[in-house]
Design a binder for these strands. Structure first.
Ligand SMILES: [Mn+2]
Ligand SMILES: [Mn+2]
Length: 558
DNA sequence: ACCGGACACCCAACG
DNA sequence: AGGGCCCATG
DNA sequence: CGTTGGGTGTCCCATGGGCCC
């Protein structure tokens, strides 16, 4: 019965979303009350003064997409007649009734009408109009706005339905942002939790700590996310000149951001520079890459410098990367490229490794399922086999370190709906928990103790959300098969290496785990068209050092 | 941890 | 007239 | 024969209804 979830038997109160918002408010006021601006306080005070029906309606609208709504499309039995609360919202400044004064919002307003309704509006205003049927909705809306007088259009819209524009949405978004600690948090997460669709590890509310300590941090994170949003729009129709000069306007503030907002700026920088490369603008791309130290910035810079004929600079950067690599890819790339630039060697070490691997012949039917073909091959020789991939070591990490991951004595939990510590994927994770993690290796130094710890944690935590652990039918069998056969000390070495930076070292593990009574091995399967990735090579080498048996197997079709 | 990673698979261009 | 996406819902 | 870049499909509550094409 595992994997099957029964339909929710839990019934939520009719106005559950109001309760959820109050839970959110209580938390935000307790943790961030002193960071709120006058406009946000005003919103809260006026919200409190509304009737419950009006508060509910406001939240119903706020939890929908957009800011423009048509009364005729709304129906909320738990609120009842929507007219009185809507009047309240209009009088209280929580909504604006759409009229010609708001013609600037016309594009949004037009979008909430159906294609058919837009045709009718158009025909009403221009009785002779023709040739509309060929246009798709979006094109129709564009043409309508181009060709029809905006004042008349506004009046026709206002006459056909009650259209309202919601206000205070920035304030609402900010409160949500403070509660979740990141953007993109949704009120539906309360519902998902309360229906039991996702189970959270229990967190002590009194131990939660604020994620932001100053308004500056909050504003920075907000600013960079709106900048990133703009980038997504620019990317739709990329023009190199526009991208480059737009980036130039953001770069100054971007480079001064603190630890909370900086990663978003780095992502923006890397994505935008890559886009400039694709636009055949290597010089601009190179300049943009220099604003971020994060991978793959340096790799791209080396390639661009090389192509531009700047051998000295390329080599210098390559050496820096080689001595202080930020991940496996940088390390392996830098080593190979240094040798390439010095004309010592032409083949990448990943392909070299692949070339030296054994080949196995697999029937062509297993195209698109190479690993299954290899499993079949080995099971015919008496092996047992399971898919291992990243699941094995991630779930082992998640289970053996469960209490360390959810340890609230480290200030990394900022919200009741948080599923993992805010530094799980950062280098600080290891820095802050060195002693505990080392101690765990000591205590679980034998396979027997380690295995017992895996089983008891698996049983007691089954079903709880942990990004590293999936509760699938093969999860425990795989863990047991591997932990019984691989020396405990070697497993701890891998786990501690992962802890240095889970973002970079949490992937690249071999495809399969195979075993018989006598032996075991990991196998990374490679189809004829596939290549070995640097992360995969990194772990293959690491396994060899640690005495874990692993090999690459090339597939040839028959 | 902001529709993105992580995989595997396929193809084309270039030396 | 259906198939499929988007979005609101609990 | 090697590298590099580009493209695709898959998975993240579950379900139903409205709208688009
Ligand atoms: Mn794999
Ligand atoms: Mn593989």
């Amino acid at each position: 019965m595992k994997g099957w979830t029964a339909p929710p038997a839990i019934e939520l109160p009719p106005r559950y979303y109001l309760d959820n918002f109050y839970a959110l408010l209580e938390f935000v006021e307790a943790k961030y009350g002193q960071l709120l601006l006058a406009s946000e306080r005003e919103f809260l005070a006026r919200f409190e003064a509304l009737s419950e029906e009006a508060r509910c309606l406001f939240l119903r609208l706020a939890n929908r997409k957009g800011q423009c709504f048509r009364l005729s499309k709304l129906s909320y039995p738990e609120i009842g007649d929507l007219q009185p609360p809507l009047q309240e919202l209009l009088q209280g400044g929580f909504c604006l009734r759409f009229c010609p004064e708001h013609r600037a919002e016309l594009p949004l307003v037009v979008a909430v009408f159906t294609r058919q309704e837009l045709c009718q509006l158009w025909k009403l205003l221009c009785p002779g109009v023709r040739g509309l049927s060929a246009l798709k909705k979006e094109a129709l809306a564009d043409r309508l706005l181009q060709e029809v007088d905006h004042d008349e259009l506004c009046q026709a819209i206002a006459a056909s339905d009650t259209v309202v524009l919601q206000c205070y949405l920035q304030e609402y978004e900010l409160l949500k942002f403070l509660f979740f600690g990141h953007l993109g948090g949704e009120m539906s997460e309360f519902v998902i939790r309360d229906l039991g669709l996702v189970q959270y590890e229990s967190l002590a509310l009194e131990k939660l700590v604020a994620k932001f300590s100053s308004r500056q941090e909050v504003d920075d994170k907000f600013w960079i996310s709106s900048v990133y949003q703009q980038f997504r729009e620019l990317r739709e129709a990329p023009v190199a000149e526009v991208l480059y000069s737009w980036y130039g306007q953001q770069a100054h503030r971007g480079s001064q951001l603190g630890a909370e907002a900086r990663p978003t700026f780095d992502r923006l920088t890397l994505k935008l520079a890559r886009l400039l490369e694709r636009q055949q603008q290597p010089h601009w791309a190179l300049e943009v890459y220099r604003h971020s130290p994060q991978p793959p910035s340096r790799e791209r810079q080396v390639r661009l410098l090389h192509k531009a004929g700047e051998q000295q600079q390329a080599l210098e950067l390559c050496h820096q990367m080689s001595t202080h690599p930020l991940n496996a890819e940088e390390a392996i790339f830098a080593q190979d490229y240094c040798q390439k630039l010095e004309r010592k060697k032409a083949v990448r070490s990943t392909t070299q490794h692949l070339k030296e691997a054994d080949t196995v012949h697999i029937p062509r039917e297993y195209r698109y399922a190479v690993e299954k073909g290899v499993i079949r091959h080995f099971s015919e020789q008496g092996y047992e086999a399971l898919f291992s991939e990243n699941y094995l070591f991630q779930s082992l990490f998640g289970l053996l370190y469960w209490d360390i991951i959810f340890d609230q004595d480290v200030p990394v939990y900022h919200s009741p709906l948080q599923r993992f510590p805010s530094d799980l994927y950062l280098p600080q994770f290891l820095d802050r928990r060195q002693a505990q993690l080392q101690a765990r290796s000591q205590v679980l130094s034998t396979s027997k103790r380690l295995l017992k710890q895996v089983r008891t944690t698996y049983d007691s935590k089954w079903g709880l959300g942990n990004p590293l652990v999936g509760w699938h039918e093969n999860t425990l069998p795989l863990l047991e098969a591997a932990c019984r056969r691989i020396p405990a000390a070697a497993l701890h070495q891998v786990l501690l290496a992962m802890a240095r930076n889970l973002k970079e070292y949490g992937r690249g593990f071999p495809d399969l785990f195979l075993w018989t009574k006598k032996e075991y091995r990991f196998v990374e399967v490679k189809s004829p068209t596939d290549a070995l990735s640097p992360q995969q090579l990194y772990w293959l080498r690491f396994f060899k050092e640690a005495g874990i048996r692993a090999e690459v197997l090339r597939v040839a079709w028959v």
